[in-house]
Write a protein that binds this DNA or RNA. Structure first.
Lengths: 185, 185
DNA sequence: GCCAGATAGTCTCACCTGCAACTATTCTAA
DNA sequence: TTAGAATAGTTGCAGGTGAGACTATCTGGC
């Protein structure tokens, strides 16, 4: 593996071409991706997702949208609309629609017409879906615990709080209750 | 908007069908997506990405892989291989390959043959690419600051530290130096 | 009651991305 | 030296996903 020069020559190149570009605060208006929060968040989320996907994909043949539908229906024990699921999980309605179709075919969920509004359907887990849900949840929680085990209890709490603050400032917080208010069900 | 019952009836349904399933710690083996770290991380990352994408997509017609290539080349002022960029950014090599092709066409980067290993090419920013990079970076940093402004300086530090710990435990930490060691350049 | 605009859900289209095959080149070990 | 394994980079293919059109239905104002 030829490795003629890396750290050694890192400072060597004075960027001569940039001198005329006086508008730019010259040199070191640079950005280290590894210290850039958006990049780190993306990478971290992807990695964590991949760790969990082993559970629901490998084991149960679910993809992320399908899992999100199940998770939403499993948590709220009442039937709710596809629209509600989409709003809750911040997933595009066409994606949810496809996930719903697939879960219906696998008889993991069922849907009933809503007599009050015949545009929409109420979705809920079937017995089979509930069984799967209740089997899957502890596994995922276990994974989550493993991933977060590197933090102390205090740190986990702090982490949750900080994430919460960022979510809030991004107007990302949409609890079930708020979604209720907006989307009914 | 009819909202007949939500929180009120949430506790109503005793899941009678599940009683036979004695293996499962009955009732409330449920999971609130909104409190589930993997889901929150995913959602947060997506939201933050979307906020930044406005800068590099709308303004400069770059997509994420293209931006990652630019960011990597801009940070390390030396030329490096596509493979190196892929490893650094944890992006699939075919994705990087396409981004490189597109950036070459736009003359934002250029590539030179590596006489020592003619399988690979060294990539670096062109003058035009540098100008774009130096224009873009402050904008993105500004966005990052805006997003993180909801945290105090101390909180930001803590947040970084905690993210770092999780990354580390996921074996996600790959600093430029480590990538150097592994991938040369 | 009726029409315009909103809404739920489906579907098509275009795009993006990962996988895996492929080429060219380099490395390793006999 | 040379065959086989490994590596850099490209490309075809298939699957997933968002945008937006479309249908059916509902709502609100006149």
């Amino acid at each position: 593996m030829a490795k003629p020069s890396t750290a050694a020559s890192r400072r060597q190149a004075k960027p001569v071409e940039d001198d005329r570009n006086a508008a730019v605060p010259l040199e070191d208006e640079r950005l280290d991706l590894f210290k850039f929060a958006p990049f780190r968040l993306n990478r971290l989320a992807a990695e964590v997702s991949a760790a969990l996907a082993i559970e629901y994909r490998e084991r149960y043949g679910l993809d992320i949208p399908e899992w999100r539908v199940l998770a939403t229906l499993g948590f709220r024990r009442e039937a709710c609309s596809a629209q509600y699921v989409a709003a809750c999980t911040r997933t595009h309605k066409s994606t949810i629609s496809r996930a719903v179709t697939s879960l219906l075919e696998r008889r993991l969920i069922e849907r009933v017409e809503n007599a009050e509004d015949r545009r929409e359907f109420r979705l809920r887990l079937t017995r089979k879906g509930k069984t799967l849900y209740e089997e899957l949840i502890p596994r995922l929680q276990q994974r989550e615990r493993e991933i977060m085990a590197c933090l102390s209890a205090d740190e986990r709490k702090t982490f949750d709080r900080l994430i919460g603050k960022i979510e809030e400032s991004l107007d990302l917080i949409q609890t079930s209750e708020e979604a209720d208010a907006k989307q009914a069900y």
